[in-house]
């Protein structure tokens, strides 16, 4: 469970996140929606320690993450798939995956790369390929697979559908849904593509100019026509 309390983050004089409070429940997908510039990426980057909050805290199963450096997060069970993919393009597919496993909390057992390959068979067929030759969809699968190598409790996903063909988006979303159901993974899913995100999310929160303006069941948000027109663009 990930509790976000009064989180406030600025870039110089600009407040990108302003007193945001909500909880991402265990074993659920919480979609974070809002227009471009609403503060969604800033929220994830603050939670994962890449930028410091001015105020507020994040608790992962009760543990305060506010002063944790970013490199401690995977060991605590938090994995972050950044916006714009974040594949290390100079490394091979398998090296990216091995790297993902190095930060996991329980290193008593060897990393289970085969499990990830069975979730993403396309990656296994390209295991020795340098990552920069992968297609956009394959790169997105690689970063998600790499995050899973750390065996996270909580997965932060920043716009996984960006720039991908609808067919690939469906495939990736179904896979995430499957992981949540089979392993009790907690997911915070940031999306501009609100319609698709709400179709797989349990809960949705809506940000506008850094503030939380709605927080409800995904189905209720999708049914709220005024909200959809005002903030979700569909």
């Amino acid at each position: 469970m990930l509790e976000i309390r009064d989180l406030t983050t600025s870039y110089g004089p600009v407040k990108a996140l302003d007193g945001v409070t909500f909880t991402a429940a265990r074993g659920k997908i919480t979609a974070v929606l809002g227009a471009n510039g609403a503060g969604k990426t800033t929220l994830l980057r603050t939670v994962s320690g890449l930028i410091r909050a001015d105020r507020g805290n994040t608790y992962l199963d009760g543990l305060d993450l506010a002063r944790m450096p970013a490199e401690k997060m995977p060991g605590l069970g938090l994995a972050h798939v950044p916006e714009g993919r974040g594949v290390i393009t100079e490394l091979t597919v398998e090296e990216n995956l091995r790297l993902g496993a190095l930060g996991r909390a329980d290193r008593s057992r060897p990393a289970d790369i085969d499990r990830v390959y069975s979730l993403f068979p396309v990656l296994e067929s390209r295991r020795s390929a340098v990552a920069h030759i992968l297609s956009g969809g394959e790169q997105q699968m690689l970063v998600i697979a790499r995050a899973l190598m750390a065996e996270p409790k909580v997965l932060l996903l920043d716009e996984p559908s960006l720039g991908l063909a609808p067919r690939i988006v469906v495939q990736i979303f179904e896979l995430i849904r499957g992981l949540v159901e089979s392993e009790g993974l907690t997911v915070l899913l940031v999306e501009q593509n609100a319609r698709s995100a709400l179709s797989i999310a349990d809960i949705g929160v809506v940000l506008d100019l850094g503030r939380l303006v709605a927080h409800d069941e995904a189905a209720a948000l999708a049914a709220d026509e005024k909200l959809r027109h005002a903030y979700l663009g569909f």
């Binding site: 450096p69 490199e71 950044p82 974040g86 190095l102 930060g103």
Partner: peptide
């Protein structure tokens, strides 16, 4: 940055 996010 990606390395840090992966715990390096």
């Amino acid at each position: 940055e990606v390395s840090r996010m992966l715990g390096v």
